[in-house]
Design a protein around this nucleic acid. Structure first.
Ligand SMILES: [Mn+2]
Ligand SMILES: [Mn+2]
Ligand SMILES: [Mn+2]
Ligand SMILES: [Mn+2]
Lengths: 216, 216
DNA sequence: TAAAATTTTTAGATTTATCTAAATTTAAAA
DNA sequence: TTTTAAATTTAGATAAATCTAAAAATTTTA
């Protein structure tokens, strides 16, 4: 059994290892809002528990056991986010903080029943895939909106930035999941993107376009 | 803001103060499965935070602030129990442990939305009243089944014992909330109670009868 | 490749919630 | 009203998670 704190470390290491493997001490420290020295202490502990492979000064990798634990936390986090949006009418920018707490509730019966109650959702309110009870993800392929060329079309199916200000901004612009968009022009001057959505023209900054994920 | 541990102390003190006021150190220690010395430490801390009035060697009483905090935890506990039974098909003996964890989730938006989603339930799956957001309870009056006399009738509306073995036992006997019962005989020998339920005769021990709550 | 900068680890302290054992206070019994 | 028993508190330790400051290792730059 892992503590609340250990679970958070495993989850962060899991997310960071998508970007770089092995994961570095400072990267974890930044994400978890703590000091590098504290991270080192915890890595030793997780290593003793065989949840990570840790080499001094080199970084850390999840073991199979650690990875499964991490994925289970991600599963719970995303299922709770679906619950909050679908059943309790939370907005997509309001769910993350609460899910950060709910993801640590231990009961496996609860998770499986929740999954069933939500009718086995495949993605969370931000388009992120929800692993099944064995840790398997559906195969989803996204392209950044910023990678699309003029006249290309696609459907918004995810976001790669989860901050409340960003999500509220998208909401206001009507750029929500499931919406069909077409690139009408890419402005040379600043790289900003003009797109057609619901037959209306809309200009978004390149920065925003980078964080919108599209499937065709 | 209170810690998980502080919240548990407040909740236990709240429940114990129904039985005896002020609440004694040893009573808390037993309920919280800890040592008296640890309780003393925590009572000092809660007193510093003005959540309890504490007099050395005399015992402890909740302040208004402490009482409201405690009631809010009870509110969350019971709402989550309703959720687990009504929405996730948990049995009434399976909910308590999970609710012990869920009751500490902080978001007030979550609690209010959950209450709404459940259509503002007045009682939990064990018949215990659910306080509203201001801490007010509906006025419910129960009598112990063991206090009823021969030929008296009533409806099962609560239980005063929440252990899983007891609740499973009642379930098996068909003695669930809402069931109408009539006392057909009280056995002199052992005080056990013979009752009519669904037109069938059933004999239950005095011990069981004491923990079944009836309204007329 | 030697010096500088960055990253990471160690050493030692702190905070929170525990504990055991001993001392103190209060309540009960003789 | 002493004496005894029970309840409670204090003193001092421990474990988990954190911190600061300093030392060590690694990487980058010159
Ligand atoms: Mn999230
Ligand atoms: Mn999400
Ligand atoms: Mn309960
Ligand atoms: Mn209950």
């Amino acid at each position: 059994m892992q503590s609340y704190t250990e679970e958070n470390y495993l989850k962060i290491i899991y997310h960071l290892s998508v970007i770089s493997n092995p994961v570095q001490t400072n990267a974890i420290a930044e994400k978890i809002q703590t000091k590098a020295a504290s991270v080192t202490d915890m890595l030793k502990k997780l290593s003793d528990k065989e949840l990570v492979d840790y080499i001094k000064y080199q970084g850390v990798t999840l073991t199979e056991k650690g990875k499964l634990t991490a994925i289970n936390i991600v599963r719970k986090h995303r299922l709770w986010e679906v619950f909050l949006v679908e059943k309790l009418n939370f907005k997509w920018d309001e769910v993350h903080e609460v899910a950060e707490e709910l993801e640590h509730i231990k009961s496996t019966l609860l998770v499986e029943r929740l999954d069933e109650f939500l009718e086995f959702p495949k993605v969370d309110p931000h388009g992120d895939p929800i692993p099944d009870q064995h840790g398997n993800f559906a195969n989803l392929s996204f392209i950044k909106l910023s990678k699309l060329k003029t006249n290309e079309k696609g459907t918004i199916t995810g976001v790669s930035e989860h901050s409340s200000p960003f999500l509220k901004h998208l909401e206001k612009l009507g750029l929500t999941l499931g919406k069909r968009v077409e690139i009408s022009e890419i402005i040379d001057f600043d790289g900003s993107v003009e797109l057609l959505i619901d037959d209306k023209k809309l200009n978004i900054s390149r920065e925003v376009a980078k964080h919108i994920l599209i499937s065709k």
